[in-house]
Design a protein around this nucleic acid. Structure first.
Lengths: 144, 144
DNA sequence: GGCAATTAGTTAGCATTGCTAACTGTTAGC
DNA sequence: GCTAACAGTTAGCAATGCTAACTAATTGCC
């Protein structure tokens, strides 16, 4: 079913992906904000304000975990929580201007680092990257 | 220098890699052993016994962190720590048969999951994967 | 040979992030 | 209108990361 050659590529890919992301995490943390903060902020910026439950689900964590994270980010002025008008049980979490700016800067830094990593890619390797991205996208669709 | 199209691919790749590894971590944790344990064990199995400092460096953590992890894995019977004969400050950490077996099983599970993810890949997509792996390997060489 | 400096690892204590269980307040359903 | 379900919070636990401070062993210099 799966050729040994394919399996070997998958294995190397696995290992390389881990190393790549490890490097990126180091960059985030050097810039002073952690993975969970970066990730939650980017959901708030790109998808817009969210309820706590929705944000927790998007990040794949439980509500109490997200509740604490939102509180911490609120204390740091990165987000704001307002009670929803039509359901007072819910809160509406909004990224502040400062949160948005920090998130964009972090994103910039990560993409720059990735750009450097891929700087030596030949045109055919870029095409290969597009192909792999398309395939992964297809394979991961319908999860999350 | 970097075309918008290339940048977009890189960005999607970044996002997909995060999702892919998140799924794998979930698999590890369902199987009852965490990322740090899996990773440290695989170093011990594939590179052989290591001193604590070497293992900490290989994993990118500080010695106290690794010291605690080794103690926990020792308590679970996954590794054994012997004092080095020629330098009694050092310890020599060895994966036990049980640790080795657990690590291999976890690895198998992860690779199976990845295999399923890539099951729908066409031959040309497998070739693209190989190309990307080669490029990443080249780009990440000389770190770690 | 003997004392100082370096090195290896551990211990103590803190922060972050994950969880479950139990609680409060709000909404919805019968 | 009372009960059940839902949204979020609080409390408390575990794992993993860190720095600072300590112990024990080795190396180096005189």
């Amino acid at each position: 079913m799966s050729t040994p050659r394919k399996r070997a590529s998958i294995e190397r890919f696995h290992h390389l992906a881990i190393r790549m992301l490890r490097g990126l995490r180091a960059i985030d943390e050097a810039a002073g904000f952690s993975g969970p903060r970066a990730s939650a902020l980017s959901v708030l910026v790109f998808r817009g304000p969210q309820s706590l439950g929705a944000l927790a689900a998007a990040e794949g964590v439980r509500p109490p975990t997200m509740s604490r994270l939102v509180k911490a980010m609120g204390d740091e002025g990165l987000v704001r929580a307002e009670t929803s008008a039509r359901d007072q049980r819910q809160i509406r979490i909004v990224a502040s201007a400062r949160g948005r700016a920090l998130m964009m800067k972090g994103r910039e830094r990560r993409l720059d680092a990735l750009g450097k990593l891929f700087a030596s890619a030949t045109p055919s390797e870029v095409a290969a990257l597009e192909s792999v991205v398309g395939m992964l996208d297809r394979a991961l669709a319908g999860r999350e």
